[in-house]
């Protein structure tokens, strides 16, 4: 990228003694509590950003454990009921030869949640420390995590659709499993965790004069 690692001196709002709004970009003098342009609370840096990131991160991780241990879906087919966990459901799909959908479910329910835990933790840990990724790469990582998190909710929707749609009595029916609740919670908690991260913290380390953290 042409603009990556530019060595030009940059003036940040904070270094200039001002406060930029994290939502709309409007610049105000410090001491102003509400952004005059958008009305959001104005913080030079979101207070307690990292603490909130970690609190929701752990909440999401704790919910993710029962989400994988309990069954996600109960399938009743010709009077026989089988429970399947998230990973079990993916294995079933692959056994039936539905590789593409198995891949989508694996991506949404396993790879994205796990990748998100790792990515958010990496971003939070790297703030204030030396990092192997450049500032620009970490910004991209942050944007990907923020964009992709909500798509994990797909699996909860699938359980709901199957339960509501397939209601053929003895022949075939689905019932939601306990894991659906924990999985939905885990997705929501990790979304809040990622949304709590103030990306400007990543770039604060790039300031050569090392203005102190708020």
């Amino acid at each position: 990228m042409a603009h990556d690692r530019s060595e030009e001196p940059v003036l940040t709002a904070r270094a200039a003694g001002l406060a930029g709004c994290g939502a709309c970009g409007a610049v105000s003098t410090p001491g102003v509590e509400t952004c005059p342009r958008c009305g959001n609370a104005l913080h030079g840096r979101r207070p307690g950003s990292l603490e909130r990131v970690w609190a929701w991160w752990f909440a999401g991780l704790i919910a993710y454990i029962p989400a994988n241990l309990y069954p996600m879906l109960r399938t009743q087919f010709l009077g026989r009921a089988t429970d399947s966990t998230i990973v079990g459901g993916v294995i079933d799909l692959v056994h039936h030869g539905a590789y593409l959908v198995g891949g989508i479910v694996f991506l949404a329910s396993v790879m994205i949640p796990v990748g998100k835990f790792l990515a958010v933790a990496y971003l939070a840990i790297s703030i204030g420390r030396h990092s192997h990724l450049s500032f620009h790469q970490r910004t991209v990582l942050y944007e990907v995590v923020e964009f992709i998190g909500r798509w994990s909710m797909v699996d909860v929707f699938v359980v709901a659709i199957l339960t509501a749609l397939v209601n053929l009595g003895f022949v075939m029916a689905f019932k939601p499993g306990t894991a659906a609740v924990f999985f939905a919670l885990s997705v929501a908690f990790t979304m809040i965790s990622a949304l709590s991260l103030d990306p400007r913290l990543i770039w604060d380390d790039a300031e050569p004069d090392g203005a102190p953290h708020d």
Binding site: E8, P9, V10, L11, T12, A13, R14, A15, A16, G17, L18, G20, C21, G22, A23, C24, G25, A26, V27, S28, T29, F135, T139, P199, R200, I202, W203, D204, A206
Partner: peptide, 26 residues
């Protein structure tokens, strides 16, 4: 271009400025 001088950035006659919401650059 990044704004060069910090003084009078918000004066009425000064050019409009915006802060990057990702990295805080003016």
């Amino acid at each position: 271009q990044p704004v060069d001088t910090a003084s009078r950035l918000l004066d009425a006659g000064a050019p409009e400025i915006i802060a990057c919401t990702v990295c805080d650059a003016l």
